[in-house]
Nucleic acid binder design. Structure first.
Length: 287
DNA sequence: TTCCAGGACCCTG
DNA sequence: CAGGGTCATGGA
């Protein structure tokens, strides 16, 4: 990977397995807007990052080198060798091979824990376009305006949000769950910072103390905010595609699928899950 | 109109 | 303890 600075922009080159479209459209994060072909603006870390990708470069517009090193390098998981991981997962598994080939440039983002937690609470029994709408509504109502967009609110900014105000953001029956998460965190019953050092299993146990956070939501937060790569979130799509390809199309309990994934994908479960999820959803597999 | 979505809660038996 | 009805919301 090569990094160069041109005027106020950062240029990345010689990087494999990076496709901004795959990364953003695969359903792991919700606060971005498409500006054009392979051109997006992402709102994270109190910044609006405009990013474009050409055949040769990935361009981080108007970005200080310090911000690239301190924020975006980790956010885009640039220290991980996805070529190696995709090659290991493709080996002896034609399903993964196909799913990876479909979206080679997918990477697991390292998202901010609070935003990730609230976003995936909202995700339950919901659709991705609607999740994006609701998360944006919350940002516009409780966050701060940067330039053209609003930040996702901090814990402090969401602390006094009432169920009625949340309902106005279309959170529906999840408003009480968000209230419970915010109150437990602001009361110090749960520290999103302290749990970072916990194992995957212990981290899940802590997150699941929040009302409205179960197996799947805690798995997503573990994977997308804390980089617990042994997590394998099982939603309707992952259930469908694993049943379709690995269980002869038969209805299979989630705990059985979990055991299967751990055995087959091991320390790379999180990556495998994301390739499978995106492929299944795009191809409507099992539906 | 009915069904369903990156589920989890809670009541019933 | 397992199973399934129920929960807002909006698009297909």
């Amino acid at each position: 990977m090569k990094i160069s600075k041109k005027k106020s922009d950062i240029y990345l080159s010689d990087i494999e397995n990076f496709n901004i479209e795959d990364i953003l459209e695969c359903g792991q994060c919700f606060r971005f807007h498409k500006l054009g072909d392979k051109k997006y603006v992402i709102i994270a870390h109190k910044r609006e990052l405009t990013i474009t990708q050409t055949d040769e470069f990935i361009i981080f517009h108007d970005t200080a080198k310090k911000d690239f090193e301190n924020i975006w390098f980790d956010y885009f998981d640039l220290n991980t060798d996805y070529k190696k991981i995709s090659s290991i997962l493709s080996e002896n598994d034609s399903v993964l091979k196909e799913a990876i080939n479909f979206a080679k440039g997918t990477r697991i983002l390292r998202q901010e824990p609070f935003e990730c937690l609230i976003s995936f609470i909202i995700s339950q029994n919901n659709r991705i376009p609607m999740i994006k709408t609701v998360v944006n509504n919350i940002s516009e109502k409780f966050g701060e305006k940067i330039e053209n967009y609003y930040t996702f609110p901090s814990i402090e900014e969401l602390k006094n949000a009432t169920v009625e105000e949340l309902n106005e953001c279309k959170t529906g029956f999840r408003s009480g769950y968000i209230r419970d998460a915010v109150s437990k965190i602001s009361a110090g019953e749960l520290s999103l910072c302290d749990i970072e050092k916990l194992s995957y299993a212990d981290l899940k146990t802590e997150l699941m103390k929040i009302k409205g956070v179960g197996e799947k939501v805690s798995d997503c937060v573990a994977l997308f905010a804390y980089a617990k790569l042994d997590a394998f979130p099982i939603d309707v799509w992952v259930k469908r595609i694993t049943e379709h390809f690995y269980f002869d199309g038969k209805d299979t309990a989630k705990d059985k699928i979990e055991v299967f994934a751990k055995e087959k994908f091991g320390e790379y479960s999180g990556y495998a899950q994301q390739y499978l999820f995106h492929y299944a959803r795009m191809k409507q597999i099992g539906k």
